[in-house]
Nucleic acid binder design. Structure first.
Lengths: 254, 254
DNA sequence: CACCTGATGTGAGAAAAATAACATTTGTGC
DNA sequence: GCACAAATGTTATTTTTCTCACATCAGGTG
């Protein structure tokens, strides 16, 4: 990718900073080049922009990334997560206050919550908050702090204290690593405090993970398998757990 | 709009809850109807969905709407805000800690910040946080709390205390109403505390508003004109301010 | 300067999406 | 069951977007 091309894309990226889209024709005028040139810029794999029906959008804008892909579907991961989440949402009851962990695993669950009444969602993840914010019927409490781009979540000094101050019925927990002997781990240390606070205070702890996490260790440990009251997973993970006597009874298949 | 149509849209809305887009063809299969039917559903004015190049996306989000529309658009509002923000960003210096108020007025400024070094942005608005989160180079501090959909911002008990605990160089303030005699007002009472805390603690207070706000009173007052060290506006507002002796010197044209 | 190379522009044709017109189905009241 | 209206499906047509091949331009090098 050449220097000018990068400059142009920087410029467009700035124009799209607040989200939104830019018609290709307008973008071409803005950059003083032809539409074709921009098409070429964007068509490289690692471009931060993509083209959707004649409009430029940020490739990482969650509003535009395809969700489903009913036909082609190499997106098995998303499909599995959706199934796990559908199962997980079965535990939610009207009036609940839910803790929803960071990561992408639990995001599909939010759509399932729309039909419930009088829910409150507590989270420290920006992507979760964005998803919840679209539902007028769900009260959203975001625990703020310093933003951590890698996990799309916030690192606040007293997030743990705030969690303890809320009456959380159900905590939905994700993990980047789940190990029969070593328990639950994640990538980032700032996630440990809120996760532990949620485990500590929630009336029910529900762990959701897909089997790519099974048998894996990540740097930051935050709990043991028996900290979860319900474990929702599939495939390898489910097989492994069912052979683990002390938690086998908590396992739920999607 | 008929009952089934509404049901279908509800369903699709849920599928898109976590953000994302859906190919029209996939959506048609999902709903068990033809593409044409969905097109018709969506083509009504008050549909929550819109069609972009064969993909369904949510319409509701304010930043879905095209940002620029160089030729056709009568989107003067956005253009003016962009100009005001470009001016406002001139006050930012490397290493600053900025407070950025809620609303849409100040969002275009964030793009301008990309070239600065070592910035920290403090905000209590979700839309501002989302815009800032795309820039790796800017540290983001989001003041959390209970989400208020109407203003896309958070209402936290001790947001004001947190603001006072931060060393804010420059506060960029928006207002829904600016009146020569009565000062600065906004729609929602929960915005008052953070705004006042920012006014109180910031080394420099920069007020940005477009002239549709001039001469207007809104229910929640949060400050006086002289609370602003710099006032960036245009048109009627600028004319009015230049006739207001005690603040005329603070006025900046874009 | 002739020559090369990479970037960009142009226009034709292919593909996809939007629209419109008309056919068919579904549902409702009588 | 019939008549009617609304909703949906089907097909054809138009419009827009995408892609490709080739022309042009700018900058460097021997």
């Amino acid at each position: 990718m050449n220097q000018r091309s990068i400059q142009r894309q920087e410029r467009l990226l700035q124009a799209l900073a607040g989200g939104g889209s830019l018609r290709l024709a307008d973008a071409a005028i803005l950059c003083g080049v032809s539409e074709m040139t921009l098409r070429r810029d964007v068509s490289t794999k690692d471009s931060p922009l993509m083209l959707m029906g004649g409009h430029l959008v940020r490739r990482d804008d969650p509003h535009f990334t395809p969700v489903y892909d009913l036909e082609t579907q190499q997106d098995r991961g998303a499909d599995i997560k959706a199934r796990l989440c559908r199962r997980a949402s079965g535990y939610v009851e009207d009036g609940d206050t839910l803790f929803i962990d960071c990561g992408t695993t639990l995001v599909p669950m939010i759509a399932e919550l729309a039909s419930r009444r009088d829910l409150t969602v507590v989270t420290y993840a920006l992507n979760v908050a964005n998803a919840v914010s679209h539902f007028d019927g769900i009260r959203l409490i975001l625990l703020g702090g310093v933003y951590q781009g890698v996990s799309q979540s916030f690192d606040g000094e007293d997030i743990a204290r705030q969690v303890r101050g809320l009456g959380i019925n159900r905590a939905f927990l994700s993990a980047a690593g789940v190990h029969a002997a070593r328990g639950l781990s994640c990538f980032h240390f700032h996630e440990v405090a809120p996760k532990q606070a949620a485990i500590e205070t929630a009336a029910q702890r529900i762990l959701v993970f897909d089997d790519s996490k099974w048998g894996v260790l990540r740097p930051a440990f935050f709990g043991a398998l028996i900290d979860a009251d319900v474990i929702i997973t599939h495939g390898e993970g489910a097989a492994g757990l069912s052979r683990t006597p002390e938690v086998a009874s908590r396992l739920v298949h999607p």
